[in-house]
Structures are given as structure tokens and as C-alpha cells.
Amino acid sequence: MTRHIARSAAALALTISLTSIAGGCLAPPNVCRGDPGGATPTDDTVCDHLASLSCLAGPIPEFVDGGPEVGPVELGFDAAGGDLRTVHATECRAGYASWEASVGAEHFAALTRCYVAARNCEEVEACNRGCELVLRPDAGSADAPSSDGGATDANVDVGIDAR
């Protein structure tokens, strides 16, 4: 928290001094740029690796066009863990197949290699960000989110600072 308070104080000082509004200085780990190349990992490889990181994929909710209904909501108290892993196995493979069909082969290979190289969920997400403009399926795809996701301004701090 001390770090954040210091950061907040620095931000306040920036404002008071009326200096130009500056962006952050952290850059996202752009894993795709350092992609060594190679074969495209299989869906089992990718999905098992994500599961080993506890990065479990859930279903696309109802607010995404084409996604499954949330439906009657189960309390799910005792379902955390085991059921989520079952859901992950299905959803991750469905997502793999969907994106394989809608993303260029070269970029899809880079993305899946990035997923397999990731060491935590933040890095998995960074794979999406690093390759954002070329890897996402087209907007309007029945089974995937739109292509414009989040920050696109290079001056904006998109650093990964998970706590």
C-alpha cells in the first residue's frame, strides 16, 4: 500500500504542478514479439497448461452474442474446483477450435505458443494484449468477442501490476 500511496502522491504532485499529463512507463510483456516460432501446440497441450496454472476457462455468458445462457443460476457453493475444471476442459477446447478456424494460422500458432509459455494468468492475458490487433477473430463472430478490446493508446499505462 505504501507504494500506492507514494504513487498517488506523485500523481497529485503532477497535477498540482500542471505538468503535462503523462502516460505510464510500464509496457506490457509483449510475448508474441519474442515468439521463437515452431509448431502449433495442440489443444490438449494448451488447455492442460492453462489448467495447471489454474487459469480455468468458463463459458461465454449470455451478454455475448452467441454465447450460452447463464440460465438458472446454481448456487455453486460446492461446485468450485471440480466442476470448473470440467467446464474448462470443454470450453477451452471449444475456444481453441473456434479461434483456429477464424484466426490466421501464423498468428494462431504464435498465440498458442504464447499461452504455453505463460507462467501465470496475467501472462496468458498479456498474450492476448501483445497480439491483440492481429489475433482476435473478427467482430461479430458468433462464438467470440469483438476485436477491439480495451486500451489501444500507446501512451496509456497498461502495465501488469497484479496484486
Binding site: 496468458v124 492475458e125 478490446g149
Partner: peptide
């Protein structure tokens, strides 16, 4: 960012 893989949201087990 909501963390995702292949467009699927990630959940903490």
C-alpha cells in the same frame, strides 16, 4: 482487463 483465453473468461478455481 478481464483475463481470457480464446475469448473465454478465466475463473479462479
Amino acid at each position: 482487463y478481464r483475463q481470457t483465453a480464446f475469448g473465454r473468461p478465466l475463473v479462479d478455481p
